[in-house]
Design a protein around this nucleic acid. Sequence first.
DNA 1: GACACTCGGATAGAGGCG
DNA 2: CGCCTCTATCCGAGTGTC
Length: 482
Amino acid sequence: MLSGHGIVNVNDKATVRSVVGNDTINSDYRHSQGSSSRNQYDWDSDDDLEVFGMPQESNVHSVEESGSTCSSAKNSKLIHHFLGMGFSVEEVIKAIEEDGEDNEENILETLLTLAATIDDPMREAFREPCDFAKKSVTTIDISDDNDDYDISDSEIEEDAFTSEKDETLSILVNMGYPFKEALIAIDKCGPGADLSDLADFICAAQLEKEIESHLQDRPNRIHDTSLHVHKRALPTTRKWWPKWDRRTQLNCLLTSIGAATVTEKIRRDLEECGAETPPPNVQDTVLKLCKKWNLVWVGKNKVATLEPDEYEMLLGFPKDHTRGGGISRTDRYKALGNAFQVDTVAYHLSVLKDQYPNGVNVLSLFSGIGGAEVALHRLGIKLKNVVSAEISEVNRNILRCWWEQTEQRGNLFEVEDVQRVTSEHISHWINRFGGFDLVIGGSPCNNLSGSNRVSRDGLDGEHSSLFYEYYRIVNEVMQAQR
DNA sequence: GACACTCGGATAGAGGCG
DNA sequence: CGCCTCTATCCGAGTGTC
């Protein structure tokens, strides 16, 4: 789901990283540097709305917190802040009671400790043993009818920090995952499992749990533990999934979806067969279309395209992230089809959590709907200043809405076009913020995509040539911060 | 060599507006 | 009624894998 995206930690040349597909070049995420001196940031500064005196001032906007000092409002914001990181209301309230409202770091530590000590219903999500190490993010079964995997708190405590698990466990916790979920993931995937698989395991279990919670009141729940990947991520499809459709994963989520005529053709073909198991030639035809368009089963002989909400879930974005605000379904598909997979980006950026305990200044190029920002937030990394360059007004609106909804305390500055980001702008920002800690972005790949029959012109194509702008800006930032 | 997959683009048609 | 915008639908060749 990622391709051609770059992530550069500009203060640590040794950990400059590039992401292509799901592979990581130089992925020594354990490597950790000391904190930067520029982390001394004045959170109470009141001069954040200044517009930098850029040549195109109207293209730069700033969004910041109102700065309310009302205790209850602050408390509410704190709760929302930590809820957004995946903790429960009870945990957050308890942590705030223990640490007070003024020290978020202590609250976060308490929350992580709580997650490691209280009884956690997440274990329910991990009962069916299977090999997750080679599967994707949507591979968790959460069936309730298999009790062969269960561990007690005492077992967890005894088993917690032993040799090989220790380091992996601490890394996962530092990435923002609850202790117990991390421990269960290690137990299920094996001590030698790759961290990305462990992260996938935890995220998928959280996703499943959320979906299941919405379905609890429904009658006739289906508990088929034999079903596979996407049927687990999309449990409402379980009931209708035919045995002869043995797909275990979905294809890349693209910017367009299958037409209604495709699903109608499938329904008609299957109904004409009449049999429970259609003849092989019909199966082949149907499966090809299902694979091509990521169709899932939603009724007898009835397939459907994924909804934008399901795109959001699978990509790790908050529910309704791209919904509303005058945004059409088509635009949602387009925006989501081009977006980062948040869990994957969070995995790659997790190394920054220790390096920048006071938060980061980010230059986000081709921001899209803010996958990088969401990932950093999810990791609990404060966003001090984010300069976001995004050509699409729809996408800028989505990111700005998310910024306000999650009550970010830092500053968001918007730029329309990366081509208009000059070295003067970069110098101004660096002087202003004390430097960027992270440059991240995914330049357009329209002209690189195999799906493009019309203008696959490579890196010299109209859109994909913006890669060179990314390269230029990264170089200018690194040179300016030498 | 057969097969599967692809961060897409062009366009007809619906709908809004004056 | 004409123009414009927006949306949904249809369109396949290049490339990698087995």
